[in-house]
Design a protein around this nucleic acid. Structure first.
Length: 858
RNA sequence: GCGGGCGUGGUGGAAUGGUAGACACAGGAGACUUAAAAUCUCCAGGCUUAACAGCCGUGCCGGUUCGAGUCCGGCCGCCCGUACCA
């Protein structure tokens, strides 16, 4: 019986060896360059899933590779531990969010450690640790002092039955998820970070983020949404509720002569004033407010409007009166909350105008077409010239941009409008009416007003943390509001009894600075100057594309704000030097049907050959993101139990490029396991032959294997450097086959396999240690330097050139690598296949790209 | 709705603008074995052909180029985000 590699015994053995040698403890070493690799930390849901395995394996490949390449590596792990699910679990099961969260963390840490990740666990923290959120409160107070935080009114989703604020996620088809009641929009006074003050900086600094994916930079730039436009007022024909005009902002002032009506948001102050006395307007606004706050819902909802009866004068012609409408698609958050509508040149305005019978006025036509607009708006191109019907600034034929610029200049000269820069980015509302979050450290005093808590009183602990009596999760709403004593505190300023803020912070705040905290996780200030200066920035950040905008933008803002307050050096205003966004892990979905024809889902482990254990055939839906509800999940622990962590790691890195989705298949996992066994068998075989004498000076076979090893080293390294781990894996497959086929001596094969162990170490660290130790490697392969290929072994002296005729491959030519172009051309034209295909035709030209291709053009 | 991305054999995918399908999975044939498992070898995009070879082929339509999976424009489909899910 042949021996086999046994991951179940080998993996814990090597994990202990790493722990004993403290290989992964990050230490400040001034003699080495540093490298900080960070994966987006997990929410402690209770179980790790394959997405986590993928994320942390990728980070681990980088961390181990950089460590072998001579860097002092920081690779920490923590927990994004505040948030709604803990409160929901408490409501559902009667436990406490804190107990639930920490139990989950223990569970997940226990599931992660068997993966053999090169993490410095001594730096671990959870954002719900009072030591962490207390420092976050200190940051908040510093931000407050620097004017980076303020209070204002903002709308939330309100469940009128449960009497509670709902997250967008908790609004299903416009109704509360528990009560089923239609939600309403309600205004509350809330805390905001002044991120909009930094719009320009957050935008322009994107240019410097060269190692971020282009798509993420584009998305952030569009989100910030800088625009150039005209702000001006439509005077009302008569002053109404104190309003004598309606201020609008437009990016297309060139279409002003196509104005057909003035539209205001249902949340516009004028609309609110009008609804007091007008039941129709009140009813319409109420209907508009019977809806969640999510932008996607608002924009996708049917467009509705109501004529207020008010009239506004066109700024270019006081005798031209436009109706004033309230329309549900106008957002109060953007611009001034009011627009002028130009149906001829904006599709949404056109649909609205057709629905309500409002006029459609063309102000220009495409140059080669003067057809009036019917049901498709002619959207003005900014760069192409168009023919104007009648442009007030005297334009006849001009591009949209020229017309916009001329219009703004004209308006400014005439004194009725002003060209301004506008940003779509809104300030970041951080108040949450929930228990399981970081308390906002302010007190409301009847005499002193809003008073910041004193830093020496931090952390402002949640009741459960501070030993206060328990709180009540049996009913919806914020338990901190209902707590009998927690909010009763002396005013930090005058000492009189006052009320503590009961809102907690958005969990995005927690994740906006954890990367900085990892550099000094036990410091008694948010960061430590020396540690931050050494370890920041994060050299490589890795996470899902779903965080492309909010988390990453908030983190960028926070790094700036922390810099302003002296918590981060100037060099760390952009916290992430390089970003990589990974794809999801997917799996086929299996289901049968119940008596009503509705799908009943089944776990992959319960399905084999398309059948359940009882023989029932399942329907198969193509691969989709793993989700508990569809049961298309594979528990990483089951894979580790069956095959070991290296198999899970190897498979998850194989096949799919890291930025794309990877489909988990049982067959693929088995194949990965087989390959690792094969590598081990090769090493075992060589070990048994280790006393064979090596030929003096090496045989030709030995030299060939050296060249193969050098080529593999270069290719695998390139794959890791280029975040193309799947190609590194493919090269390692080929390398393995080459070693297996090679007739080289045992000594030469041992040499090749030791290099293979080094190359595999970032991906399959346990097997790599096993092979390394079997073949006489010194110490741990985790501590061995990255292999270097001898350039002399990489030189190829001849090359195969494909010969194309008119771009179609017809033959090929093996030539010396540096053969002159004209000789290559002559050989190509003398090629029998070329002569046959040409059939006497005279080539017009011959393109020779040295070392690549020959193309004969006829 | 808006912003961004992706689309290549039966499947996952490879390919500095230069031989499309490397490397794998599933499949087929064979070796070894009493047998199975394990392992090893070979075949394999589609169509035509006895073979040589030829034609077609990277979601669809068009363009740039000696040459396009790759670049540009327009569509279709799917995915991510859309500010209180994390």
């Amino acid at each position: 019986m042949s021996a086999r590699y046994d991951p179940a015994s080998a993996e814990p053995k090597w994990q202990s060896a790493w722990a004993e040698a403290e290989v992964f403890t990050a230490t400040r070493d001034p003699s080495k360059p540093k490298y900080y690799v960070l994966e987006m930390f997990p929410y402690p849901s209770g179980r790790i899933h394959m997405g986590h395995v993928r994320n942390y394996t990728m980070g681990d490949v980088i961390a181990r590779y950089k460590s072998a390449s001579g860097f002092s590596v920081l690779h920490p792990m923590g927990w994004d531990a505040f948030g709604m699910p803990a409160e929901n679990a408490a409501m559902a099961t009667g436990g406490h969010p804190k107990d639930w969260t920490y139990a989950n963390i223990d569970e997940m840490r226990g599931q992660m450690k068997p993966l053999g990740l090169s993490i410095d666990w001594s730096r671990e923290f959870a954002t719900c640790d009072p030591e962490y959120y207390g420092q976050q409160q200190a940051l908040f107070l510093d931000f407050l002092e620097k004017g980076l935080v303020y209070r204002k009114n903002a709308v939330v989703n309100w469940d009128p039955v449960d009497m509670t604020v709902l997250a967008n996620e908790q609004v299903i088809d416009g109704c509360g998820w528990r009560s089923g009641a239609p939600v309403e929009r309600r205004e509350l006074t809330q805390w905001f970070f002044k991120i909009s003050d930094h719009s320009e900086e957050l935008l322009s600094a994107l240019d410097g983020l060269e190692n971020w994916p282009e798509k993420v930079r584009t998305m952030q730039a569009n989100w910030i949404g800088k625009s150039q436009g005209l702000q001006f007022s439509f005077p009302l024909t008569e002053t109404t509720s104190g309003f004598d005009g309606i201020e609008v902002y437009t990016t297309r002032p060139d279409t002003l002569l196509g104005a057909s009506f003035v539209g205001i948001s249902p949340d516009h102050p004028l609309a609110k004033a009008l609804e007091v006395d007008n039941p129709d307007i009140a009813a319409f606004c109420a209907e508009c407010r019977q809806m969640g706050t999510s932008e996607a819902d608002l924009e996708k909802a049917e467009k509705k409007g109501l004529d207020t009866g008010l009239k506004a004068r066109h700024p270019l012609d006081p005798s031209w009166e436009l109706p004033v409408w309230i329309a549900n698609f106008i957002l109060m958050d953007y611009g001034t909350g009011a627009v002028f509508a130009c149906p001829a040149h904006d599709q949404r305005d056109l649909d609205f105008a057709r629905k309500y019978g409002l006029p459609v006025i063309d102000t220009f036509f495409a140059q080669d077409d003067d057809t009036p607009v019917s049901n498709t708006a002619f959207v003005p191109p900014k760069t192409e010239k168009v023919t104007w019907v009648n442009h007030f600034a005297g334009l006849d034929v001009a591009t949209g941009q020229e017309a916009i610029d001329a219009t703004i200049t004209y308006a400014e000269t005439q004194g009725w409008g002003k060209g301004i820069e506008n940003y779509r980015l809104r300030d970041w509302g951080l108040s949450r009416q929930r228990y399981w979050g970081c308390p906002i450290p302010v007190v409301y005093c009847d005499d002193c007003g809003v008073v910041p808590e004193k830093k020496e009183n931090l952390p402002v602990s949640l009741p459960y943390d501070s030993g206060n009596e328990s709180i009540d999760f049996s009913v919806p709403g914020n338990p901190l509001d209902r707590h009998p004593t927690w909010s009763d505190v002396p005013c930090p300023s005058c000492g009189k009894m006052a009320k503590r803020e009961t809102d907690t912070m958005d969990t995005f705040v927690d994740s906006s600075w954890y990367y900085a905290r990892f550099t000094a996780p036990r410091a008694t200030t948010p960061t430590d100057g020396d540690e931050a200066a050494y370890w920041m920035n994060v050299d490589q950040y890795i996470g899902g594309i779903e965080h492309a905008i909010l988390h990453l933008l908030y983190s960028r803002f926070f790094a700036r704000a922390m810099n302003i307050c002296g918590h981060l050096p100037d060099t760390a205003r952009e916290p992430f030097d390089a970003l990589f966004t990974q794809g999801m892990v997917t799996h086929e979905i299996y289901h049968t049907r119940d008596s009503n024809g509705r799908p009943v889902y089944h776990l992959p482990e319960d399905v084999s050959d398309g059948k359940l254990a009882d023989g029932t055939a399942v329907e198969i839906i193509p691969s989709a993101k793993m989700s508990k509800s569809k049961k298309n999940v594979v528990d990483p622990l089951n894979i580790i139990d069956a095959f070991g962590a290296d198999t899970a790691r190897w498979f998850i890195l194989s096949d799919s490029p890291p930025e794309r989705d990877v489909e988990w298949t049982a067959a693929g996992a088995e194949a990965a396991y087989k390959h690792l066994q094969r590598v081990w068998r090769l090493a075992d075989d060589v070990r048994q032959r280790s006393d064979e004498a090596a030929p003096a000076g090496g045989s030709e076979e030995d030299r060939a294997l050296s060249r193969i090893t050098a080529r593999a080293t270069v290719d695998v390294t390139a794959g890791i450097e280029g975040f193309a781990f799947n190609t590194s894996v493919a090269k390692l497959y080929a390398f393995t086959s080459a070693v297996a086929k090679s007739k080289a001596s045992a000594a030469a094969k041992a040499e090749a396999l030791r290099t293979m162990a080094q190359l595999m170490q970032p991906m399959t660290p346990h097997l790599a240690e096993e092979v390394w130790s079997m073949l006489g490697g010194v110490d741990l392969v985790a501590q061995a330097p990255w292999p270097k290929a001898d350039p002399a072994l990489l030189v190829e002296d001849s090359v195969v050139l494909p010969i194309q005729i008119n771009g179609k491959r017809r033959s090929e030519l093996k030539v010396a690598k540096d053969l002159p172009k004209d000789e290559v051309e002559a050989m190509a034209l003398a090629d029998p296949a070329v002569i046959r295909v040409l059939a006497g035709a005279i080539p017009k030209k011959v393109v020779v790209v040295p070392g690549r291709i020959v193309n004969v053009v006829v």
